[in-house]
Amino acid sequence: MAATETYITQSPDIACSTLGDDTIIMSTLDSTIFVLNSVGTAIWQGADGATPLSRIVQDKVCLEFDVTGDEAMADAKEFVDELARHGILSVSSQPVSPGEVL
């Protein structure tokens, strides 16, 4: 049985800006601020709801930052869970159509 894929989508309730290597994200619901480093930024930019997290990690993280797949995937899941807890990302086991908000 194939492992379930994870799809991540940026929340519409955020404001976001890239300064230098960092991406700064603010929740417009409670003004909480998150600062993503370059690896976090790579995952964030791939969070289009259509690309599986495993593909984002493989293409954006492993290739660009020279880390192994298992290690990168474990860190990415932790990162995604953290942002999802704060409503910055939404997580789905199915691809999300453009404009569809979970």
Binding site: S17, L19, G20, D22, I24, I33, V35
Partner: peptide, 8 residues
């Protein structure tokens, strides 16, 4: 200051 720190 790092830009992200400055913004915060």
């Amino acid at each position: 200051l790092e830009p992200s720190v400055a913004v915060r």
